[in-house]
Amino acid sequence: MFDDKKDDIFLSRWINGELSPEELHEFQSHPEYEYYMKIMAGADALNLKAYDVDTALNTIKSRRNTSSQKSTKPVIKLWPYLAAAASIVIIFGLFLFNSNDSFTTSFGEQLAVTLPDGSEMILNAKSEASFDKKNWDTNRTVSLDGEAYFKVKKGSTFTVTTTNGDVSVLGTEFNVQSQASFFEAVCYEGKVSVSSGQENTILTAGKGYRKIARIASENWTFEALEPSWITNTSSFRSVPLGYVFKELEDQYNITIDTKSIDTDIIYTGTFPNNDIDVALKTVFSTLGLQYQLLQDGKTVVVEN
């Protein structure tokens, strides 16, 4: 009856003795009355643990002298630490990710990379090159797998290391191609030194060096100013057919079925790197071979 909405302060008024005599009389005769009386009697017997005001005040007085430090101490500014932590992360990141730069090209891709001293390196398709950026000033060395053209700024010895041999120069333009068992260095400007196994050859501008497995190394001269692949043409001069096919495969991401033909045939010629139909026609028709590009566009079957 007392939680009805009509008089929502009835019990408050009762506690304060604000009920009219009639109201009070009516309430006293109500069965709930004794329960509320008991609650009030119990509540009024409650006591809160004593509070020693003087002790509390003394505690405050002893604390407030040092409190200027105390109150500021817990507020540790977070951002300087965050900044420091972020710097460490950035420094680490720079060190980790930039000290040893690595570049990779996929089928038919070319990638021009400017080296830390301003030298240029252009990677041909399916090639990988890496170098140590941190020690570049003292150690101009690039590890290469595949083919790349270099324009080297004058400075300390510039070395390209491959699994087949090293090419080192002082400042020049040259092309290095190193595949499974095929190693070729061509010098377009200046002077390069090529060492492969026991052999050591000096190339001047317009000279080339090549070593193919099982075939004796050879030198030749030419007149081009830069390798033809820079302008999207692959050119070959007396190269076993297997390497020509390898280049076709790298440029166009195709597979050439060579089971029925002799890949040791020597080939001289060029093909474009941006038109597969012309490229296949150029290579195969000069060799007098029939070929078929299967419908998946990935496989070339050669018929003798």
């Binding site: 007392f2 939680d3 929502d8 302060i9 009835f10 019990l11 408050s12 008024r13 506690i15 709930e32 329960y35 509320y36 008991k38 609650i39």
Partner: peptide
């Protein structure tokens, strides 16, 4: 003050319900 009186009334009603008939 009215708000306090309401809360006081409610508190008593709630206590009465919680305690039951002892």
């Amino acid at each position: 003050v009215k708000a306090i009186e309401k809360l006081m009334h409610k508190a008593l009603v709630t206590l009465r319900k919680k305690i039951g008939n002892i």
